[in-house]
Amino acid sequence: MAKVYVGPAGIPIGLKGKRSTLDGIKYVKDVGLNAMEIEFVRGVRMSVADAENAGKLAKEIGVRLSIHAPYFINLCSDKNSTVEASIKRLMESLERGEAMGATVVVFHPAYYGKLGPEGCYNAVKESVIKIIELMGKEGISHVKLGLEVMARRNQFGGLEETFRLVKEVNNPQVVAVVDWGHVYARNGGNIDYRAILSMWREYFGNQPMHTHFTAVKYRNGEWIDEHEPIDTNNPPFEPLAQELAKEDMEVTIICESPLLEQDALKMKDMLLRYGNIIA
């Protein structure tokens, strides 16, 4: 059975009032969840001091924190200024992640663009190695850099290429982040949870997994990365809960459904039903 951390991507929707990060962390704990991803997707707007305060509270009450870096990142741009700005945004996110004791900073690496898949692969790898060097210089030693598996076929982030790059970089501070909905969309509305978990074992052994889950939408003949409540079952969550129960591993599942903590609690119930342990 898996040991699972589960919680929302961002401040819970049930939280009223000023909706601060600190209040969000408390709310997550109060409703019975144990993880929360801090959303920097529109920009890094949290000070290092505020990150430290968030981390202190989360540690005290037992909520695992992670960060989603800004969307405005493209390590395969043909403009050096875009790549440099992308690395800067990642370093700002990593600095906050280190301050709050976050496990991982998740990011969308790139679009293939003019470089194509293999050229983009090499460009992302080069930038990741540069970021590792910068992390060392800045004393960032706890938080990990997480390359997210992506939904669109024009984006860098197929399952195999992401796993391959992380394996080749071979640094404990660089990890792959599996977004189950993205895999489902990229595969045209199909997902084999057992195959993905087996692939993870093959590449990374018993390394903890950080993952995202949401249902996605079908529109104009294709599956797209537009988030839906998990009851739409695209993909279904219950089979994942069943497969995780067969695994002796640690998994974080961040709910990106529009219903956030409401769907996270549904996921928690299903996980427990099949014998998984909520950490």
Rank of each mutant, 00 (worst) to 15 (best):
M1C: 08
I11V: 12
I11Q: 06
I13R: 15
G14Q: 09
T21W: 15
L22V: 08
D23E: 15
G24M: 03
G24V: 04
V28E: 04
K29C: 01
D30N: 04
V31R: 00
M36G: 06
E37R: 03
F40A: 06
R42Q: 10
R45A: 11
R45K: 15
V48D: 09
N53V: 15
G55L: 12
K59D: 13
G62M: 06
R64F: 14
H68E: 05
A69W: 05
A69T: 06
I73D: 00
N74W: 01
N80E: 14
S81D: 14
T82Q: 14
E84P: 04
A85N: 11
K88E: 14
R89E: 10
L94H: 02
G97Y: 12
G101C: 10
V105Q: 03
H108Y: 03
P109F: 09
P109N: 03
A110V: 07
A110Y: 00
Y111S: 05
G119L: 13
I129H: 13
E133G: 10
L134C: 03
L134P: 02
I140K: 03
S141P: 03
H142N: 13
V143F: 01
K144E: 03
L147C: 09
G158V: 10
F163H: 03
F163K: 05
R164T: 02
K167A: 13
K167W: 14
V175P: 13
A176I: 12
V177F: 09
D179N: 05
H182V: 07
Y184P: 00
I191T: 08
D192R: 08
R194I: 09
W200R: 00
F204K: 13
M209C: 07
A215I: 08
Y218I: 15
N220A: 10
E222K: 15
E222Y: 09
D225K: 00
D225L: 09
D225E: 10
H227R: 01
H227A: 07
E228V: 11
E228R: 13
P229S: 05
D231Y: 13
N233F: 15
M249N: 12
E250F: 11
V251R: 03
L259S: 00
E261K: 05
D263A: 07
D263E: 02
L265A: 01
D269R: 11
D269N: 08
I277A: 12
I278H: 06
A279C: 06
